[in-house]
């Protein structure tokens, strides 16, 4: 038997099943909470901090993706403060590496670009970091451009949780953190990569891409491998 909870999101009363996250319930009810690291069908890490929401009675901000609903919760998903934080986080993602939309494979098909548009970001206030990062194009089918990577680690999770290959991992720490294949082996020499391409399909930006095909040609966001029930909402939206 599933327990059902009633709670309040942005002033509206909603019903939810026990074990659902705030994010899932909000999405079900047409309330949009920005996310970047979250992808339905993969585990949640609460690392992008975009989905932070306010819960009445707590002075801390709560990540909507990993927080499970409880009876009588009163959640605010948008406020002036939250929007400002989201804008700053998005700005940080742009400034952390080198994102130049005009020359990016993912231009107009990029979740980061969409987010910036949604939050009406038209200029940056913080200093530019401008790091020197590389590209690994050693794989015959795919390539990774670290300049566009936002460290959401969707590739790491899809590789481990869906494909089961555990090719992708994380190396370094802090601002020097990078996603790597097989402990830093060039991707093309990776003995574990099955060349399934799932990592490319889940990548929100132009960091991972298919050689010789632009993202406008539909080489991205084809995600039939994600669990069906989780994908249902997304699929319906696309058709």
């Amino acid at each position: 038997m599933t327990t059902v909870h009633t709670l309040r999101i942005d002033g509206a009363d909603v019903a939810a099943s026990d074990g659902q996250s705030i994010l899932a319930v909000a999405t079900e009810n047409g309330i949009d909470i920005p996310t970047m690291c979250h992808l339905d069908g993969l585990s949640d890490t609460a690392s992008c901090r975009l989905c932070l929401v306010e819960v009445a009675g707590s002075n801390k901000l709560t990540p909507a993706c990993t927080t499970l609903v409880t009876e009588g919760m009163d959640i605010t998903t948008t406020s002036e403060q939250l929007t400002e934080y989201r804008r700053t986080i998005t700005e940080m993602l742009f400034l952390e590496r080198n994102h130049i939309c005009a020359i990016c494979v993912a231009n107009n098909h990029c979740e980061l670009q969409d987010l910036a548009e949604k939050l009406q970001i038209d200029h940056f206030e913080l200093p530019v970091i401008n790091p020197s990062v590389g590209i690994d194009a050693s794989h015959p089918l795919f390539a990774i451009d670290h300049n566009r990577c936002i460290m959401c680690q969707r590739c790491v999770r899809v590789c481990a949780e869906i494909e089961g290959a555990f090719t992708w991992g994380v190396m370094g720490s802090g601002i020097a953190e990078r996603v790597v294949t097989d402990m830093g082996t060039p991707w093309g020499e990776s003995p574990t990569c099955t060349s399934c391409g799932k990592c490319v399909q889940v990548c929100p930006t132009g960091a991972l891409f298919e050689n010789g095909r632009s993202i406008a040609e539909g080489s991205k966001a084809q995600r039939p491998f994600l669990p069906f029930l989780k994908r249902l909402g997304e699929g319906l939206e696309q058709t």
Binding site: T45, S47, C48, M92, L93, P127, S173, I175, E177
Partner: peptide, 16 residues
């Protein structure tokens, strides 16, 4: 230096 890099505000914010 010691930020693990997992979350954006700490990874990028401390550098900024």
């Amino acid at each position: 230096e010691e930020s693990c890099g997992k979350c954006v505000p700490c990874r990028v914010g401390t550098t900024q």
